[in-house]
Simulated assay, not measured.
Amino acid sequence: MGRTREGRPLAVLLPYKTPERAPWRWPRLRLTHMVGLAGLILLVGGSAFAQQGGARLPALEVIWKWSPLLLSGFGFNILMSVLAMVLGTAAGVGLGLLQIGENKVLRGFAWSATQFFRNAPWLVLLFFAMFMIPFQFRVFGTTVPFPDWVKAVIGFSLPVMANMSEIVRGAVASLPSGQWEAAESLAFSRRQTLWMIILPQCVKRMLPPWMNLYSLITMATVQASIVGVSEMLTLTAQVHAAEGGRPDLLAPLYGFAMLCFFVYCYPIERFTLYLERRFQLNQ
Rank of each mutant, 00 (worst) to 15 (best):
M1W: 13
T4Q: 08
R8D: 12
P9A: 12
L10D: 07
P15W: 07
K17P: 05
E20I: 07
P23K: 14
G36K: 04
L37V: 07
A38K: 00
I41Q: 01
I63M: 05
I63A: 01
I63D: 01
I63N: 00
S67L: 12
F76S: 03
V93Y: 05
L97N: 11
N103V: 06
V105K: 07
F116D: 09
F116G: 10
F117K: 04
R118P: 00
N119I: 04
W122C: 10
L123I: 15
F128I: 14
A129K: 02
A129F: 06
F131H: 12
R138W: 10
V150C: 05
A152G: 13
A152P: 02
I154R: 01
G155K: 04
F156R: 04
L158V: 12
V160T: 10
M161P: 00
A162Q: 02
S165G: 15
E166N: 14
I167V: 15
R169I: 07
V172L: 15
S174V: 04
G178C: 03
Q179E: 13
W180M: 08
E181G: 00
A187E: 07
A187I: 07
S189C: 09
Q192H: 12
L199D: 12
K204H: 12
M206G: 04
P209L: 06
W210Q: 03
N212Q: 11
Y214C: 01
V222I: 15
S230A: 15
P252A: 00
Y254Q: 00
M258R: 00
L259C: 02
L259F: 05
F261Q: 04
Y264F: 15
Y264S: 08
Y266I: 03
F279D: 10
